[in-house]
Design a protein around this nucleic acid. Structure first.
Lengths: 252, 252
DNA sequence: GTCAAATAATTGGTATGACCAGTTGACAAG
DNA sequence: CTTGTCAACTGGTCATACCAATTATTTGAC
């Protein structure tokens, strides 16, 4: 008797009502269906329309407010803000995926550019500020890479850890918080990026050189090594993106 | 009869209960009084302790969750996250001011470094991508600067607008969102930075040169001009920061 | 008719209290 | 020791009433 292939059961994602309301309204705003300046329906009207209690609606509104998507004022209707002007980096993740499920190429490009602008500078600062201590941590990650050759998924995790230590070494809160946002965005599409970023991930040598540069507090070398390293992945992702858009073109 | 000096009444900022609860818990977390990994009291316990309704507590928790400061899971206690790892740039504003009301020098330094890393690249991209159109908008801002000579507050507003147009020209969502966060942080301490940044604000010539470079799509020139321009303010702020910390030292 | 003050209607803000639904850990049965 | 049950937490949802701020309308004086 043939054994059917193991159906890998993934944990089902739970979603509270306020989560659902939040996502629905957020997506409508980001899609432009609720343009900046427009008013949201009254809370009681939203309850009615969505079939939930007012608490759920209010909690969702609080989250939208915290995210910088709407402004709520007692006595007046809640108004939609221009998310391009009023939100912070934590929205990158949702902006990355268009409504049709494909990548938004502009967002991808923007993320890559930011990575290339901050990464080398962070490497420079880490070398100058945390030299030896940071360099040793980086070297440990490089050693882990050697054990993981061929396992792209594991290499992704190690590379992330590598950069996280580098950012810590740079001792820059703004870079840290930006990294958090970029990392979370990256995490959403990690599997899809494994192949395109193979050139950046599979070769441990540049990481080793960068770790060494940091270790000897050579800021200039660290900066230029980081620049070269990041360019590898950038090229791969952009190429994959072009192929994908070409394929989408063919589909028509 | 002597007239007492006009007591300038500023509009009192309204604050809902959930706002107050949010701020209190957020500050406790950021101050380390509620360390990462620790559990928050149960919602009903918080209501009791804070003297408010459970709705207010829940709405505050939703905001904390959205900000990446806590994680809430049904059936279990809410837990505090490590904000250095789980929050995004929108926390810069609160991190900037220490509990005693002074600036956190490390945060200031970090913001300046990020500004210097992204600004020149944004200028380069704006020149390459939006050249003429963007350059004309920038030129208009430069003209406004001429009318505002001497009025530092107005110059601040114009410079902000100048950079906003430049970021738009760079056509990079990530830069835009990062700019939003930096700008909001800047806005909180605008008046305090007017003097220290005078060298960057008062001279319109560098802005004019940058606008011209963008206009003729000269990416390299735009980048280096932006670098020089931003260095002016950076130097001034860092000097002011040293003076302030020296003064604080004297106070003891 | 004009304009300002009073008022009604609409919006969000807060409060109570009940009950549903997951999580955890103690505890008894196997 | 393992396993299943159950009790006591936890957050999630609901209904309803009333308070408070804003806005639009009406009213009334001039």
């Amino acid at each position: 008797m043939t054994q059917s292939p193991a159906p890998d059961l993934r944990p089902v994602q739970r979603q509270s009502l306020s989560d659902a309301v939040f996502e629905q309204l957020r997506n409508q705003i980001l899609r432009g269906e609720r343009p900046a300046g427009s008013s949201l329906p009254a809370e009681r009207a939203l309850c009615e329309a969505l079939g939930v209690n007012r608490s759920a609606v209010r909690e969702a509104l609080r989250r939208l407010e915290q995210a910088g998507l709407v402004v709520v004022r007692q006595g007046d209707a809640s108004r939609v803000l221009d998310y391009r002007r009023s939100t912070s980096l934590d929205l990158l993740g949702v902006l990355l995926l268009r409504p049709d499920g494909r990548f938004d190429a502009r967002v991808v490009r923007g993320i890559l550019e930011m990575r290339s602008a901050l990464g080398p500078d962070a490497a420079r600062l880490a070398a100058l500020r945390s030299g030896r201590l940071c360099g040793e941590r980086l070297t440990a990650e490089v050693a882990a890479m050697a054990d993981a050759q061929g396992d792209l998924t594991r290499l992704q995790a190690i590379a992330t850890s590598f950069w996280s230590h580098l950012i810590d070494g740079a001792d820059n809160v703004a870079y840290r918080l930006a990294f958090n946002a970029l990392h979370e965005t990256y995490d959403r599409v990690r599997v899809l990026l494994a192949r395109p970023m193979e050139a950046e991930l599979a070769d441990a040598a540049p990481y080793a050189a960068l770790a060494a540069a940091v270790c000897r507090s050579d800021g200039d070398a660290a900066e230029s090594l980081a620049r070269v390293l990041l360019a590898r992945g950038e090229r791969g992702v952009l190429e994959a993106l072009e192929l994908a858009s070409a394929a989408a073109w063919e589909e028509r």
